[in-house]
């Protein structure tokens, strides 16, 4: 909260001024892993899957903490982009510069001791890939394509390594970019990628404020509540949630669905659970996607690279 300064002192302005863009925290993956383990216990049908993903996310933290990348941008490299409202970490232009493939190798090593029999062939398959083949997988992720059946099981690993590489850069940005405007309002101001989901924060300076969470670099940016993340209209927004059979709230995640363009993005209000986290809670509320698909009115607009549909 910014204060008002007088010659005789300063007074709090009393009005909330939420930050426009939130760069990732250094412990982003550790907190996500914790939440995934919590959710693995709460959602038995997804327990194995979520436990495995929790390991993968924990490994992401390990790689982020432990590895110094071969390439770092020079100081001032992003000044021009920041000044002109361009995403400084544009995924398309940085893909060849970043050594995310080394992050992938480190990630696979970190996972080695934790994978079950079913998953270890995936690690082998990834290790056997040439650089060009890996780049092709990265391209599928950036273009949000499902790839072949054989590739699809490998994509989440590649995406996880890319998240580490981009989050590392986002963490080190000299200053936060401005929030995107116009038609780009739902694209990450750091890397230009699509959001996984929205989150409504509870901290004092951003209480009740909605942020979109990037699917690649973990940056969050403000978008007004009750606004469709696809068509940006605000008049017909419906919120679908999951109740247990006895009427208890099952999970905090909801689907924010727009009656104008018939799309939805998950929204995770942290007031129900302070540790709720957009990517983890999106995965764990998979049943909500299945139910909405069955109902048939709304199509999903969030991209979660840890679960890629066929």
């Amino acid at each position: 909260m910014k204060g008002v300064n007088h010659s005789f002192g300063s007074a709090p302005s009393g009005i909330m001024e939420p930050p426009e863009v939130l760069l990732p925290q250094p412990d982003i993956f550790a907190r996500r892993a914790l939440r995934m383990r919590e959710l693995a216990e709460q959602v038995p049908p997804l327990a194995d899957f979520l436990s495995f993903m929790a390991r993968m996310v924990q490994a992401q933290q390990q790689v982020l903490d432990g590895r110094e990348p071969a390439w770092r941008p020079t100081p001032g490299a992003f000044d021009v982009a920041l000044e002109h409202g361009m995403p400084p970490l544009s995924a398309a232009s940085l893909r060849r510069e970043l050594d995310w493939r080394a992050d992938l190798a480190a990630l696979l090593d970190a996972l080695e001791l934790h994978v079950a029999e079913r998953q270890s062939p995936l690690l082998e398959a990834l290790r056997a890939k040439t650089d060009d083949q890996l780049e092709e997988l990265a391209e599928l992720i950036l273009e949000i394509k499902p790839g072949t059946d054989a590739d699809r099981g490998l994509l989440p690993f590649v995406a996880a390594a890319m998240q580490v590489a981009w989050a590392r850069l986002a963490l080190a940005l000299p200053r936060t970019p401005e929030r995107p405007t116009g038609a780009a309002r739902s694209l990450c101001p750091c890397c230009g990628s699509r959001p996984v989901a929205s989150v409504i924060h509870i901290e004092k300076d951003r209480q009740g404020v909605r942020y979109l969470h990037c699917s690649l670099c973990e940056t969050e940016w403000h978008l007004e509540r009750v606004t469709c993340t696809t068509c940006h209209k605000g008049g017909q927004l419906h919120y679908f949630g999951l109740d247990e059979a006895d009427g208890k709230l099952a999970l905090p995640a909801q689907a924010e669905a727009c009656g104008h363009c018939n799309s939805y993005l998950k929204i995770v209000p942290r007031e129900f659970n302070a540790s709720a986290e957009p990517l983890a809670d999106d995965l764990a509320s998979l049943v909500l996607d299945l139910m909405l698909d069955e109902q048939g009115t709304y199509a999903r607009n969030g991209y979660n690279p840890l679960l890629i549909a066929g």
Binding site: F52, L155, A183, A184, L286, L290, N301, G310
Partner: peptide, 25 residues
């Protein structure tokens, strides 16, 4: 950046059967 309003993703029963989750075992 390209803004494609209509690139929705299908995450239903059919998509899940062939999803990365299923392919990962």
């Amino acid at each position: 950046v390209r803004v494609s309003r209509r690139s929705f993703l299908k995450l239903g029963a059919a998509g899940l059967g062939a999803s990365s989750m299923a392919m990962m075992g």
